[in-house]
Amino acid sequence: MLSEQELELLTAFVDGDMSRRQRKAVLRLLHRSSEARAVLRDLQENVHRLMELPKRKVGEDLAPAILQAIEVRGLKPTPPQPVLRRRVPVWARYAVAASILLLGAGLASYLISKAGNNGDLIAKGDKIKSQSFAFQDLRKEDKRNLLVRELRKERAVHLDLKVRDNASAVQRLRDAFGEKGVDMLVDEKAKSSLAKLQGKVQYFVYAENLSPDEVQAILHKLGAEEADSQWHNFQSVAVSSLSDQHKTSISTLLGVPEADFFMGRVEESKLFDQTFIEAPKGKGKKAPAIQAAPQRLAVVLANTSAGSAPSQEIRQFLASRQQQRPGTMQVLLVLNQTA
């Protein structure tokens, strides 16, 4: 059995990447080891296999098609002109800074007076300050704490993710959600769109009954992976409240009337806004323990025009919906491919 070092010598020998001393060492190795000779022969055969592949030609002149694309898309070989910004007067900057400080102070005193330290329960009423985080920054504890603080302010949040590649982002989100016990279903249309590598399509990943800490952990995992990777797919995440427009989009894509889905009757559709259990606000009241849910599912949807019949994945997701547990939220991740 050849050692790793001996194998390294052999592959380097194939590429001619070695010093005179290493070359002598290889020759000695080849002299004494029939296994080394066999490995070298295989390696050299494989080099020849690749070298012998026939030269392929594109088969037609691409130039006309490319020139047409340049014209149709209006591409230019020069950089876009920078947009000139009007300078803001210095006094206005001070005025804005002072207003922000006053607002911050007021908000802080309001929060302190609330004395609502409810662990990971959601403090209903405070609005999320729309904030953006670079994924790699989520390795820093202070950033993660800030993220969780924002997430705890809402029962329904929107996370806008900038990614370089939607398909691998969905795959990695699926793994990250899976670690939190949330299975991800990919709707038929989204599957087809991902397979066609349609970068311009926006994808929704919708999930319920996720705690702020779980969401933070999912994003943290993605951020940590980015740090280890040479190719950075997840770039940034912006956190904000789930807008009415997004609620409409989700309902439409799932093929469920918005009124039923978000504000309708509890018995029929197990709605989240109506069934949400409020986090206790008063002192002394003990927070109800978060119970384990049976099975949580997330669904991936392509944000294109909705089809006539809901797919099997959508039906499965709708059937799996549970009453919202305290301290959890509805989460919509929107994937935007930047490249």
Binding site: L53, K55, R56, V58, L62, A63, P77
Partner: peptide, 21 residues
Amino acid sequence: SAAFGELVSRYQDRLYNTVVR
């Protein structure tokens, strides 16, 4: 932009031969 067409014709096959592999 027609000058770019000349660059395309010049390098398209060499590029394609690598990319197809």
